[in-house]
Simulated assay, not measured.
Amino acid sequence: MTADPSSGAAHDALAGSLKRTEIQRAPLSVAGREIVQVRTEIPPGVESGWHIHPGEEVGYIVAGTVEMRIAGRPTLLLQAGDGFLIPPRVPHNARDLGPGVGEMLSTYLVEVGQPLAAFTEPPDSASR
């Protein structure tokens, strides 16, 4: 993921469907890892698309209602004040259920030099 310093906008595989703003990025105390914090806004009815991250995602719902589908786990219905954890390279998909914009704050503990997010195929169990 790269950021445009003039706008604070995050640019990666998910940037086309979501508004993502990188808040901070710094080396982690674990060699080869960095910490990246991102604020994501998901318009009503929009899905992130199935994707993975090269490290853990520790998230918190700031506003709205978000359906979080994580491969191999039951679907989560998250509302403002709820947190979530996603293991490295586990496919997942977030969808804002509306009526307003879903907002989340995610902190990633990821491998240096890897894209923050990459689209992937949905798991077999994810078909609607």
Rank of each mutant, 00 (worst) to 15 (best):
M1H: 06
M1P: 00
M1E: 09
M1A: 09
A3C: 10
A3R: 11
S6W: 15
S6R: 15
S7M: 11
A10S: 15
H11C: 14
D12H: 05
L14Y: 09
S17D: 13
S17P: 00
K19G: 14
K19P: 13
K19H: 15
K19Y: 15
R20V: 14
T21L: 08
E22K: 03
E22A: 03
I23A: 06
Q24S: 11
R25M: 07
A26V: 05
A26T: 05
P27V: 09
L28M: 13
L28G: 15
S29F: 10
S29E: 11
R33A: 15
I35T: 15
I35P: 00
V36W: 10
R39F: 06
E41A: 14
I42C: 05
G45L: 01
G45I: 00
G45R: 09
E47G: 09
E47Q: 08
G49Y: 10
W50H: 04
H51F: 06
H51C: 05
I52Y: 01
I52F: 09
I52L: 04
I52T: 02
P54A: 02
E56P: 07
G59N: 07
G59F: 05
I61G: 00
V62Y: 07
A63L: 02
A63Y: 08
G64R: 04
T65M: 04
E67P: 07
E67W: 01
M68L: 11
M68Y: 12
M68A: 13
M68V: 08
M68F: 04
A71D: 01
G72L: 10
G72S: 00
G72N: 02
G72A: 02
P74H: 13
P74D: 15
L76I: 01
L78M: 01
A80P: 02
A80C: 05
A80L: 06
A80S: 12
D82A: 13
G83N: 14
G83W: 09
L85A: 04
L85V: 12
P88V: 02
P88T: 09
R89G: 06
R89E: 11
V90L: 13
V90M: 09
A94E: 14
R95E: 05
L97R: 14
G98S: 08
P99W: 14
P99C: 14
G100A: 10
G100Y: 08
G102I: 14
E103K: 14
E103Q: 11
E103T: 13
M104V: 13
M104E: 11
M104H: 06
M104S: 11
T107H: 08
V112W: 10
G113F: 13
G113S: 06
Q114P: 05
Q114I: 04
L116S: 00
A117Y: 06
A117Q: 04
A118D: 08
A118V: 10
F119R: 02
F119K: 05
E121G: 05
E121Q: 14
P122F: 05
P122L: 01
P122Y: 02
S125C: 06
S125I: 14
